[in-house]
Design a protein around this nucleic acid. Structure first.
Lengths: 397, 397
DNA sequence: CATGTTAGATCAGGTCGTGAAATAAGGCAT
DNA sequence: ATGCCTTATTTCACGACCTGATCTAACATG
C-alpha cells in the first residue's frame, strides 16, 4: 500500500536540483547542454538550476571543451572540496577511519587494532572518536566542511536516534552506538551494517556500477549480503534485511556460532571452512591458511562451493537480480580460483530464467570498501540535497 | 544507482491527483477537510483537485456528515461504477474469470475446468477470451468502461509486450500469452504470476492491509511467495522474483519436480507432504487427504512444520518484513491447526531481532484471491492516474 | 573582420500549490 | 423567523516553477 506524498511547487526545484547534482556526481564533468539531454530538463532549467548550484559553491566550472565550430561547452562538475565525509569501518579486528573529499579520494586515515574479544563498547567509541579527531587534524579540513560521519558496523542496526546495535560476535546487545557517539561529536551520523556499506561501495564505484537490482555478498569470517533494489540498499522495516549468513541451507545441519543449525555461514564462513577441513588456525593466520586450502582444493572446498552455489541460487530465485557481486576476503579467495565451479553450482540450484539474467562477478574493491561505503552514506544524503528527506535512510542522527 | 526523474510543473498535478485518488480509494468516503489532513495538501488544493476528479466522473459525492455545529462535511468517494476491471486466474485445474467494479464487488464470473495435463495453450487462451466475453455479456457493462484485464498465471512471467510465460508444470516454455490474447481482445492486459496477484489481494484487502513490507506465501501443490517492499510487489529485473518454492533448504536433499534437489517445495508442497507420508491421492481428493493427515498429525507433519519454519525464517532474515501472511489451501490447512508450532519453528530458525518485528498471520481471502488480485493490477494502474507511468509494472500491454 | 555555428542566458507565458479572505451551510439561542 | 456562531469549502492574489522562443556570447573559418 504505497503512499505517495503530496508535492508542492518547491519540491519540484528540490527534486530537479537533486537530479542535476546526482547526474553531475556520477557522470563527472558535463556541459549544461549534455545535462539537458541526460536529465530531460529543458536547457533553460538546467541553466537556472546549475546557476543555483554554482552560487552555492556546490558545483564549479571545470574547463572548456570545443564544439565543432561553435561556442565551446563549459564543463561543470561537483566541487570535490565543497565538502568532506568521514567513513568508519568497525570490524572484528580493527577500527578504520577515513576522511574523503566528495570524489572519494582519501585525505587522511587512522587505524586501531582490536584484540579478539576486546570489543568493549567504550573502547570502540573512544577509537572512533579519536579516529575522527585524528583524520580531521591530519587533513587540516575545516570542520564546518565535514558533512557527516558514516559508520559500517557488524550486526543488526536498528535505525533511530540511538542507532541500537545488536552484534552477537561482539557481545553487543542493543548498544546505543549513535547516542554514545553523540556525546563526543556533533557531526551528523549515519550508521549501517558493514556488509551494506561495502555493498554500496561496490554499487557506486565497483563491480556493481550501473545496476538497479544487485546483490553484493560478503564472505569473511562472517557472511552477509547487501541487497540493492531499484538502485537503493534494501533495509526492510527495521533495517536488518540481508541477513543471508543465517538463512538455513540445510535443515538440521551443522551448528552455527549463532546457536541455530544449518545456517549458510556454518558452511561457507571462513572459520567454518577451516574447521570442516580440520584446520584450526589462530585468527592472525586465518587468511593465509584458507588461501592454501583453496589453492590445493579437495572435498571440503568442493562442498563449500556446493553450498555457496545453493546460497547464491536462493538469492537469485528470490530477488531476480541482474548482478551478483562476490566480495569479502574469503569470497575473493574462493572466487579467484573457482568462479567457474561456483557458477556451475549456482546454475544447478537456480531456475533457468533468473539464472540467465544474473551475471556473477567478483568485487573490485579491497578491504577498505567498508569504510568507503560508510562514507557514501553521507554522500547519498548530500546528493538528495535537502536537510532530511522523509524517506527512510540508515540511522541518520 | 537510483535515477530520479526530472519533473515538470504538470507532473505535480498528476502526482497530487494520484495521491488524492489513492487516499480516497483506500480510505473510503472522506470529506475534503479530512483529505487535506491525510494528504498534506492544502484545503485549497484538495478542493481544486477534487473538483477535477468530480468533473471527470471519477469521484462522486457520497452524503453528508454532521460536524458539530458547523457546515456539514460532504463525503467524497471513488465512483465504483466509473470503471470495471476483469481478473483472470489461470490455475492447474481451472480458469476463473471475474468482472469487478472498482469496489471489487464481483459483477459476473465464468469458470472453466482444465483436466490435468490439459494445458494446451490455445485451449487456455480460448477459455480466457470466452470468459471475458461471458462476463461482459452477463454483467451488461459498457465495454468502454472496462479498464483492463489482469491475469494471474503460473510460472515466471517475463514482462514485455509478449508477456512470455515459462511454466514448467504446464509444459509452457516461453509462451507469448500476451501476444496470443492480443489477437482476441483490445483491452489493456496485465499479466503476472498468480502467487503475486494473490499477494496483492491479501495486501490490499486481506491480512496484509496497511503493511509496507510484507510477504505473502502461497502453499498449495506448488509453493510461491509474493514479496512486498515499500508497499509494492517486488518483481526484480525480469519480474521473476519471489520464487521461494525452489530455494534450497537442504543441500543434496529430496528431489523436486523441478529436477533440482533440496527445494523447499519438495518438503512443504502439498504433493510432497502426501508423498512423504506414503499417501498417493489422486488430485481430486488431494485436499481432503491432506486435511485428514494434518488433523491426525504425526512425524511427517512435524517435519513439514520444521521445514516451513526454516523457509519462513529465511524470508524473515533476508527481507525483515513487518508481516508474513500464510495463504494457499495447504497453507491455511496447516496454519489453522499448527500456527503455534509454526511460529515456534520460525523463532528457532530466525534471528531474534527481525523475528520479533514480523507478525505471522493466516490469509483471510479464499481461493478466489488470485483472480481478485489479478484485477487489482488494473486498479493499480488506474490509481496512478496517468496513461502509463515509466515505472515498472507487470507486463502491461 | 564578417559569417556561421553552437552554447548558454533571458524573457514572457502558463501551471501549480498556498495562505488569506470570502462564502456556504448548518445549529442554536433569541 | 432572525441573527449569530461554527465549521467546511471555495475564491483569489501571489510567488515559485518549468518551458519554448528568442537573444546573446564565444569560438572557428575564410
Amino acid at each position: 500500500m504505497v503512499r505517495p506524498e503530496r508535492r508542492t511547487v518547491r519540491d519540484l526545484r528540490r527534486g530537479n536540483r537533486a537530479v542535476l547534482l546526482r547526474t553531475l556526481y556520477f557522470a563527472g564533468p558535463t556541459s549544461r547542454h549534455e545535462l539537458s539531454g541526460m536529465t530531460g530538463l529543458s536547457a533553460a532549467s538546467v541553466s537556472n538550476v546549475a546557476g543555483d548550484l554554482i552560487a552555492d559553491n556546490v558545483v564549479v566550472e571545470a574547463g572548456l571543451v570545443e564544439s565543432d565550430g561553435g561556442r565551446p561547452r563549459v564543463l561543470l562538475r561537483v566541487d570535490p572540496r565543497y565538502g568532506y565525509v568521514i567513513g568508519v569501518d568497525v570490524g572484528e579486528t580493527h577500527v578504520h577511519v577515513g576522511l574523503f573529499n566528495l570524489d572519494m579520494d582519501e585525505q587522511a586515515k587512522a587505524e586501531f587494532t582490536l584484540r579478539p574479544a576486546q570489543h568493549d563498547v567504550d573502547l570502540v567509541v573512544r577509537h572512533i572518536l579519536s579516529g575522527i579527531d585524528a583524520v580531521m587534524a591530519a587533513s587540516g579540513v575545516d570542520p564546518a566542511r565535514v558533512l557527516g560521519v558514516g559508520l559500517g558496523v557488524p550486526g543488526i542496526v536498528e535505525s533511530g536516534p540511538d542507532a541500537l546495535i545488536h552484534a552477537q560476535t561482539f557481545g553487543w546487545d542493543a548498544v546505543p552506538l549513535g547516542a554514545l557517539l553523540r556525546a563526543g561529536t556533533s557531526l551528523p551520523l549515519y550508521v549501517d551494517n558493514g556488509a551494506k556499506t561495502m555493498g554500496q561501495a561496490e554499487l557506486w564505484f565497483g563491480s556493481g556500477r550501473g545496476s538497479r537490482h544487485a546483490i553484493v555478498v560478503l564472505l569473511g569470517s562472517g557472511v552477509g549480503a547487501s541487497i540493492i533494489t531499484d538502485g537503493l540498499t534494501y533495509r526492510g522495516v527495521n533495517s536488518s534485511a540481508g541477513e543471508w549468513g543465517h538463512t538455513k541451507i540445510a535443515v538440521g545441519g551443522r551448528e552455527c556460532r549463532c546457536g541455530a543449525r544449518g545456517c549458510l555461514e556454518a558452511y561457507i564462513g571462513a572459520e567454518s571452512i577451516l574447521e570442516r577441513a580440520g584446520l584450526s588456525a589462530e585468527m592472525a593466520r586465518e587468511q593465509a591458511t584458507l588461501a592454501d586450502l583453496v589453492k590445493s582444493g579437495g572435498p571440503v572446498i568442493d562442498e563449500t562451493i556446493d553450498y555457496l552455489g545453493a546460497g547464491l541460487a536462493n538469492l537469485i530465485n528470490l530477488f531476480n537480480p541482474e548482478r551478483i557481486v562476490i566480495g569479502g576476503w574469503a569470497g575473493l579467495l574462493l572466487g579467484q580460483h573457482e568462479l567457474v565451479k561456483i557458477k556451475k553450482a549456482v546454475a544447478l540450484n537456480s531456475l533457468t530464467q533468473p539464472f540467465e539474467t544474473a551475471s556473477i562477478v567478483l568485487g573490485r574493491l579491497g578491504p577498505d570498501a567498508v569504510a568507503l561505503g560508510a562514507a557514501t552514506l553521507v554522500v547519498e544524503e548530500f546528493l538528495l540535497g535537502n536537510a532530511f528527506s522523509s524517506s527512510e535512510q540508515p540511522a541518520a542522527i
